[in-house]
Simulated scan of single mutants.
Amino acid sequence: MADTNLRIAANRTEAYFPLLKGKKVGLVANQTSVIFSDARETGIETNYTHLADSLLSAGIDLVKVFAPEHGFRGTADAGEEVEDGVDRRSGLPVISLYGQNRKPSKTHLEGLDLVVFDIQDVGVRFYTYIATLQLVMEACAETGIPVMVLDRPNPNAQYVDGPTMEPHLTGFLGLNLIPLVYGMTIGEYATMVNGEGWMDNEIKADLTVIPMENYRHDATYSLPIKPSPNLPNDKAVNLYPSLGLFEGTNINAGRGTDGQFQRYGAPFLNKEVFTFRYTPEPNPGAKNPKHLGEVCYGQDLSTEPELRKVSLEYILKAYRNCDRKDLFFNTSGFSKHAGTEKLQKQIEAGLSEEEIRMTWKTDLDAFQKIRSKYLLYP
């Protein structure tokens, strides 16, 4: 059950506004970085103000904002470069962290006394906001600038699952050797990155995490604002750890439709097995989706029961009923999303889901021991 007494960190202005007074502040934020005016914070979309606007209204010297993937207002496509610019609403300069630079430069940070990070995460390794967080922490550590993380719920915090990243595949889709679903809030994750020495040269940031009040990992949390253009609702967020694996294949995962990450399909899946069909077209967040304008045969998952694990059911079914297996995988992209080259080989070899899941256990057990040191909530 969702806890209506939950207070996200951004709403705990009494805990962090005093720490910002008299400082020149940088803000890493997007469209989810808001303060809710509804005390219950249940997600009435018109009932909030953007954190940048709130800081300025409070007289805090907000100097610039940094934009992650999808941009400061969250309108760019996945993978689309975000350009530097000026935020029309506030007049603040916007520095892109998803263009030529993924990590703030010393010039970007010059003149700042502190950097605040406040972005809604969804708890999946290849969702790039945790990589942005780590690179911001690293840049700030190198320049001696403190970092403050305002914590938010993780809608996929109820479990830890999936293959663990292998060292030779690390990159922006996974900087650390963590499972696909890591079961931590973004504040807890920041503490782990710092504590485990995962940044370059094991440097540590001067880190402050403003925790939430009345949060539990096993609580459900309905995201009041889309965390990115192609995660439009709770069902998409829940299925994302499982259907996100299709991002490294030539299977469309609903981009270019109104069922993003709630369906999958391709022209070369067996139309006798897959009777559901749809045609991807350009839409906000997917200007050029896979199989644009082609009829895709696949499966509608919009009414599936809620998952509390990474399910391989969908990708195994798609592969087993694919008329052109030579077209299925984008090998490099799939390995980077999965975090391992083993999963593709296991799928191609015909292993069952249970057989594949057994190969994850040792790594998952080891990660759970590390994770337990950094949990801020029950």
Rank of each mutant, 00 (worst) to 15 (best):
A76V: 05
G123F: 02
R216H: 15
K309G: 00
L114W: 00
F274M: 01
S90V: 11
E304M: 14
A67S: 11
L6Y: 09
T132C: 12
V63K: 13
M184V: 06
E81H: 07
N47P: 06
L207D: 05
V82R: 04
E14L: 13
E142L: 12
G259D: 14
A318W: 08
L20I: 07
E294V: 03
E294M: 12
L231C: 11
E247C: 12
T303P: 06
D200P: 08
G350K: 06
G174C: 10
T331N: 11
D151R: 07
A58R: 11
V65Y: 08
T164Q: 02
T331A: 14
Y129M: 02
L316P: 13
D326I: 03
H70Q: 08
T4I: 15
S311Y: 03
N214W: 12
K290D: 04
A349D: 15
V63I: 15
K21Q: 15
L177D: 07
P378Y: 14
D218H: 14
L133A: 04
G123W: 01
L173Q: 12
Y314P: 07
I44H: 13
E272Y: 14
T185V: 11
G162L: 01
S352N: 00
A39D: 13
P232R: 10
D151E: 09
N252Y: 01
F117G: 07
P18Q: 07
K325F: 13
S242W: 01
L327V: 00
L6N: 11
T359E: 14
K103G: 07
P155A: 05
L27D: 11
I225S: 11
M199V: 02
A190H: 11
N238C: 13
N154E: 10
V65G: 04
D161I: 00
V295I: 13
Y240M: 10
R308C: 05
D121V: 05
G244Y: 00
K226F: 09
T362P: 02
D151A: 10
M165R: 08
A131F: 09
L27R: 06
N250K: 06
Y278H: 09
K106E: 13
A9E: 04
P232T: 10
L364A: 00
G123K: 02
G79D: 06
Q120P: 05
G79W: 07
G350I: 05
C140N: 08
G259E: 12
V65M: 08
T279A: 06
A366L: 07
R216G: 15
C140V: 03
R371S: 00
N233E: 10
G162F: 00
